[in-house]
Amino acid sequence: SLTLTVRGEEAVRRWYKWAQAHNLEVEVETHGDEYVLHIK
């Protein structure tokens, strides 16, 4: 499992696509303009 902090929706989309390509689940938490992604 992997936890990432990114800024901006574009980065979130990029990681989301990456995770889907690897059959992984993604949980997204929003903290202001930062997003915490939990990839499992």
Results as ranks from 00 to 15, higher is better:
14 R>F: 15
29 E>V: 11
20 Q>F: 09
36 V>Q: 05
11 A>R: 05
36 V>H: 06
15 W>R: 01
6 V>S: 02
33 D>V: 06
12 V>E: 02
14 R>G: 07
38 H>W: 07
28 V>C: 11
1 S>R: 11
22 H>L: 10
14 R>V: 08
22 H>D: 02
31 H>N: 13
2 L>N: 04
6 V>F: 04
7 R>N: 07
2 L>Q: 05
24 L>S: 02
18 W>Q: 01
12 V>K: 06
9 E>T: 10
36 V>N: 03
14 R>K: 12
7 R>E: 05
3 T>D: 05
27 E>A: 10
10 E>L: 09
34 E>A: 10
14 R>N: 08
17 K>Y: 10
38 H>A: 04
40 K>F: 14
39 I>P: 00
31 H>I: 12
19 A>W: 02
27 E>G: 05
18 W>S: 01
20 Q>T: 12
8 G>T: 15
2 L>S: 04
2 L>K: 05
10 E>Y: 08
13 R>K: 13
17 K>L: 14
22 H>I: 03
32 G>M: 05
12 V>Y: 14
22 H>K: 06
6 V>T: 02
5 T>Y: 07
30 T>P: 12
10 E>S: 09
9 E>F: 13
18 W>N: 01
32 G>C: 04
5 T>G: 03
15 W>H: 02
39 I>V: 05
39 I>K: 00
3 T>S: 09
8 G>R: 03
37 L>N: 00
40 K>W: 14
1 S>G: 14
4 L>M: 09
33 D>P: 05
13 R>F: 08
12 V>H: 02
24 L>D: 01
21 A>S: 11
11 A>L: 09
37 L>P: 00
9 E>A: 11
8 G>Q: 04
20 Q>Y: 10
8 G>Y: 04
36 V>W: 05
6 V>I: 09
36 V>R: 07
40 K>I: 10
6 V>H: 01
3 T>Q: 08
26 V>F: 14
5 T>M: 10
14 R>L: 12
17 K>W: 10
33 D>H: 07
38 H>Q: 06
10 E>G: 08
9 E>P: 09
36 V>G: 01
39 I>W: 02
14 R>E: 10
3 T>N: 06
13 R>Q: 13
16 Y>L: 15
7 R>Q: 11
19 A>T: 02
17 K>V: 11
20 Q>N: 08
22 H>V: 03
18 W>V: 02
36 V>I: 14
17 K>A: 15
2 L>D: 03
6 V>P: 02
20 Q>I: 14
32 G>L: 05
39 I>H: 01
24 L>F: 14
38 H>S: 07
3 T>K: 10
39 I>E: 00
19 A>N: 01
40 K>L: 08
15 W>N: 00
33 D>Q: 09
7 R>W: 11
25 E>Q: 13
36 V>L: 08
25 E>R: 12
24 L>Q: 03
7 R>L: 09
20 Q>D: 06
18 W>M: 02
38 H>D: 02
1 S>Y: 14
18 W>A: 01
1 S>N: 13
1 S>L: 12
38 H>L: 08
37 L>D: 00
35 Y>F: 12
12 V>A: 12
6 V>G: 02
36 V>A: 03
5 T>D: 02
11 A>F: 05
17 K>H: 09
14 R>Y: 14
28 V>M: 10
23 N>M: 08
31 H>P: 02
16 Y>P: 00
24 L>H: 04
22 H>R: 10
34 E>L: 15
27 E>M: 12
22 H>F: 07
38 H>K: 10
29 E>Y: 11
19 A>F: 07
29 E>F: 12
22 H>S: 04
26 V>P: 02
32 G>I: 04
36 V>S: 03
8 G>L: 04
25 E>T: 15
10 E>W: 08
10 E>M: 09
9 E>G: 06
27 E>T: 14
14 R>M: 13
23 N>E: 07
17 K>T: 10
8 G>K: 03
14 R>A: 13
37 L>I: 14
35 Y>T: 05
23 N>F: 09
40 K>N: 08
8 G>P: 01
7 R>F: 12
5 T>N: 07
27 E>P: 00
1 S>E: 14
30 T>F: 12
4 L>Y: 03
1 S>F: 12
25 E>D: 10
2 L>W: 15
4 L>I: 15
18 W>D: 00
32 G>H: 05
14 R>D: 06
33 D>A: 07
10 E>A: 13
29 E>I: 11
11 A>Q: 09
10 E>Q: 09
11 A>V: 07
21 A>N: 08
17 K>M: 13
14 R>I: 10
2 L>H: 07
30 T>K: 15
24 L>N: 02
37 L>W: 01
5 T>Q: 07
10 E>F: 07
9 E>I: 15
11 A>Y: 06
25 E>H: 13
15 W>D: 00
25 E>P: 05
32 G>T: 04
28 V>S: 03
4 L>D: 01
7 R>D: 05
15 W>P: 00
12 V>F: 15
3 T>H: 11
27 E>I: 15
39 I>L: 07
2 L>V: 08
38 H>G: 02
23 N>A: 08
3 T>A: 05
31 H>K: 14
6 V>D: 01
12 V>Q: 03
2 L>G: 04
5 T>H: 14
18 W>F: 05
24 L>E: 01
31 H>Q: 10
5 T>E: 04
2 L>R: 06
20 Q>W: 10
29 E>S: 09
35 Y>W: 08
24 L>A: 06
7 R>V: 12
13 R>P: 01
13 R>D: 09
16 Y>K: 15
12 V>P: 01
18 W>G: 00
